[in-house]
Amino acid sequence: MSEAPKIQINHLTKIYFKKHKAVTALKDINLSINDGEFVCLLGPSGCGKTTLLRILAGLEKPSAGEFHIRRTSKDRPLQSMIFQEKGVIPWLTVEENVAFGLKMRHMPKTTIKQQTDYYLEKVGLKEFRKLYPSEISGGMKQRVSIARAFANDPEILLMDEPFAALDEQNKFILQEELLTIWSETKKTVLFITHSIDEALLLSDRIVLMSTQPGQIVREKMIDVPRPRKVEAIRSNPEMEKEFVDIWEHLQTAVEKARQS
């Protein structure tokens, strides 16, 4: 890996200031992510992982520090985000939602049609293209969200607990589907979750965060070969050990936060 990292984060800090009181949401975050790497940010709620993602998504500004996302093509957007369950726009049809990013960037009509069709097919929503989000299930909505982000063809993908609101079965199905689509494009992904299982299944590397102040405390490489399946990860004794290890870490982090 002689190439420069795809995402480089240096000394990123975010402080919320309210009524003469400063709360440190993120403290001195340093992280570099390679091209094509799937990284999960794992931490208890309130550890600032969403804040970090929102900063990278351009929705919030850091108080100090900087980040850089390496560009390979001028026509590509820097990043696209897959939001939590409610991120599908209710007044646009499935098709319009998937085409949203391309339309906002005023791409040529044929490109929009091509990309939209391709990813609608990929997530199995071709026959539902004319429906509104209120007419489809939660799992299908998240498929729309995934298709929208991939169709936009960004440099990197950001995912903010996209499967947190789904039931267990749907979650497994969508996780595997995401991996399939991802393996075709090999995009760099930064994925937020509080589920250890999810992180073990999806990532090349897990970045563990602790709360108050939110900072990176440990990193873990997960070198299970791909393609991965839910059953395989579940029955892998190596992964069981990793699970317990991460769980112990999270427990101490939560307890420390409680005492302070």
Binding site: A57, G58, L59, P77, Q79, S80, M81, F83, Q84, K86, G87, I89, W91, L92, F100, G101, K103, M104, R105, R148, N152
Partner: peptide, 27 residues
Amino acid sequence: IDGIYLDVAKNYGAKSKDFFFKIALPG
């Protein structure tokens, strides 16, 4: 209008005219 739709619009690069017709008006 729910803040998340404004986030989506911003993240996917909606400029003022598109924002008006695709988000503000229908919302």
